[in-house]
Design a protein around this nucleic acid. Sequence first.
DNA 1: TCAAAAGTGTTCAGCGTACACCCATGT
DNA 2: ACATGGGTGTACGCTGAACACTTTTGA
Lengths: 230, 230
Amino acid sequence: MKKYYKSQPKHHVAVDCIIFGFDGVKLKLLVIKRDFQPGKGNWSLMGGFLQEDESIDQAAERVLEQLTGLKEVYLEQLYVYGNIDRDEADRVISVAYYALVDTQVFGEVNGHHHTGKWFDINERPDLIFDHNEMVEKALRRLRRKAKIQPVGFELLPSKFTLPTLMKLYEAIYQEKFDKRNFRKKMLSFGVINRLEQKDKTGSRKGAFLYEFDMEKYNGMLQNGARFVFS
Amino acid sequence: MKKYYKSQPKHHVAVDCIIFGFDGVKLKLLVIKRDFQPGKGNWSLMGGFLQEDESIDQAAERVLEQLTGLKEVYLEQLYVYGNIDRDEADRVISVAYYALVDTQVFGEVNGHHHTGKWFDINERPDLIFDHNEMVEKALRRLRRKAKIQPVGFELLPSKFTLPTLMKLYEAIYQEKFDKRNFRKKMLSFGVINRLEQKDKTGSRKGAFLYEFDMEKYNGMLQNGARFVFS
DNA sequence: TCAAAAGTGTTCAGCGTACACCCATGT
DNA sequence: ACATGGGTGTACGCTGAACACTTTTGA
């Protein structure tokens, strides 16, 4: 069976990961300083080559885990970049994925991996090859997605306050929202539960903690309702 | 420079095209009967292997032109399919593209290519490999896109009537729309111009022909306005 | 004259948006 | 007591959705 495509060319295929995080104030991007050629010493997205025994999704998960130690984070294919000269060294097709991670979890897990550095999304350094383009596309995708699906919660700890959630949305959209309207809208979906605890790190009064309720979200979808922000 | 990646595996990379058309009534899908192994005799999307000297976008354009004779049609990358066993014969990474073509133009251009066949989108045959999945994803994408960009016009001749345009939207969304609301909405964007001519093929009274005005559309975007259907 | 599709306005409800004050608490 | 962020309700305008009749013309 393997003979049919023998005459066809083969190509290097890589995955590159755009990793977004949120520190409670700013939207962050995790990049690495390349310690190999080409482009050694430059800032770059995390990436790796697709191997024979893994799907592309698996490759993305592997790359993410190898470099951050994180598993089971939100990871979505973004786009394929296939210009002939996009990589200086040789032709490489790159499949870009974007990931949403809670920076607090990453902080703990990180430990022995010091290659990565978080940058504020607006102060990120210039990246090699077409990686800037990838980041911009990922940002546009994140902004679109966050409007119609509760993906934002992936960037937060499992317990979070409404003011923090609002700051996240403000960081994603680079726009200020009205406190009352934001709460009304968010609570109207009925997919977050208020807990008894308060988080007092942000103020003297303290803000109630909430958690995302996946079951209620699924129920909501089955009722034909939709999560539509803004 | 070419040495850096020597140790990394290479893969077959293909493009597959989901080609949508509109015949004035139904949304159509163009598929081919494979005349080569594996899967010879089965229905399949049009595809081809990525060559060394072309970008992926170029490969998609080439495949589309080789099999339909069509150039400069709406073509957009959809998704990459990279499971190890997705192709029976050997591992092939497939980059799916979807295209929107005016079936009338294709009819003329077609001529010597008889490999393809148009199916109503709801009566399409089972396709090989993961091509069914690709078509479903393309449909979802088309539905999403058509809400926020005037891509629908790609499926129509340059001159079209409002009843036809409405039928197109009904075919895309598989849903009936109210004539008055549809016209009001469409005309409110101010991006189609009414011509003096009427098309009398659809009724005795005849319906005015319109054409899409790209300049007005661009102007509209610069004013911060948006094309948002429904 | 009639059949068949084209064309045309109004009303109502729901939603997004703007907007200002009191509350709880640690210092 | 006071400063700091947390929490709450209302009014208005716009837009999507529902809805029915007249017009044109070829047969």
